[in-house]
Design a protein around this nucleic acid. Structure first.
Lengths: 176, 176
DNA sequence: GAAATATGTCAACATGGCTGACATAAATGT
DNA sequence: ACATTTATGTCAGCCATGTTGACATATTTC
């Protein structure tokens, strides 16, 4: 009996066991990696008088042209009032346009302008440089491993939706 | 000649090439994963009247007891005024204490109290549940792969320092 | 026609960043 | 010894971006 218990305890990897010890390294690496990752576009954004909130909106509208305001709100997990502030600036300055929905004329579907598309691409390229450098250091397969890890970190209820979003955006891009 | 060029171009993985197309999937997965990861402790923090800024301070002081104020500022990349606001509340409410440096009496070295340690542990445990669940879904080796990817995403100049921080904090913990 | 839905807007407030200016105590350099 | 630098703190004000609550408009749906 005693032997069996000892073996079972030793067999667990304590670092990955929620009942025992926090996974300090990944908690901290996530903080540092994200801190650096999101700061890359800051300088460019500042030149346009924009902040990170504008970036997020522009990014997702660019990736999903024609999306509903309500869907963007849910994705960003902010209120319409918060969105309204930055969206208004992006529209006023000609980065985003809103078009009446074809089937439902209450909707104000979001689209980037050519200017908006160009800025979104510039910002994504900055972030891509960091990611590409990281993947290059690691072996092949690192992209897939990172994708799987990050996807597994997303709330279970949202995961399928997020992956579908990425999938459909990629497909739309390929058709361009 | 023509054949060689075509082969070289096809051999590149376009998705990981900074010169061609943004790595949309990882950009977005990082956003979603981090969005959910940092929101886990929110409810608990709110019960104590704290926010995410308090969490970050408490976390790093707990992990690195005796750290200098200046080091914490650099790590969080905020100003002393921003730190001061949340640090004061953590000290006033008995989660953190500051002790005069032994060698340099100008320093106010940061330590968690028992209460602070307990809260930091509770918050880290919440985040660990998400990470542990993710790692469990993926194979063994996922922890190491995630660690390597995230570390590679950190600014080159800081990477060694961050890894040293984690390493030394882990060692100190093991000695407890 | 009534009710529900998609969106927008006004006002007020909270959190957590920032800059600039200034203060104190202790260490360090000359 | 004295001047300078360093580590830290603090006051005041501003900015970016989140929140709630109340209300308005147009359109769709029951």
């Amino acid at each position: 009996m005693a032997d069996i218990n000892v073996t079972a305890i030793k067999a667990r990897r304590p670092a990955d066991d929620p009942g025992s010890e926090p996974i300090w390294d990944l908690i901290e690496l996530l903080f540092f990696a994200y801190r650096d990752f999101v700061s890359d576009p800051d300088e460019v954004l500042a030149k346009f008088g924009f902040g990170r909130a504008h970036h997020r909106v522009l990014h997702f509208v660019n990736r999903n042209p024609g999306m509903k305001v309500a869907d963007l709100l849910e994705l960003l997990r902010i209120t319409k009032q918060s969105l309204g502030r930055v969206l208004k600036q992006l529209v006023d300055q000609g980065y985003i346009v809103q078009r009446e929905g074809a089937h439902d004329r209450r909707q104000r579907l979001l689209h980037v302008t050519e200017k908006g598309r160009a800025l979104a691409l510039q910002l994504a390229t900055l972030q891509t440089e960091r990611i590409a450098a990281a993947l290059k250091e690691l072996g092949p397969g690192a992209h897939e491993e990172a994708r799987r890890f990050l996807a597994a970190m997303i709330d279970r209820e949202d995961r399928a939706g997020v992956l579908a979003f990425i999938e459909s955006a990629d497909e739309a891009r390929r058709r361009t």
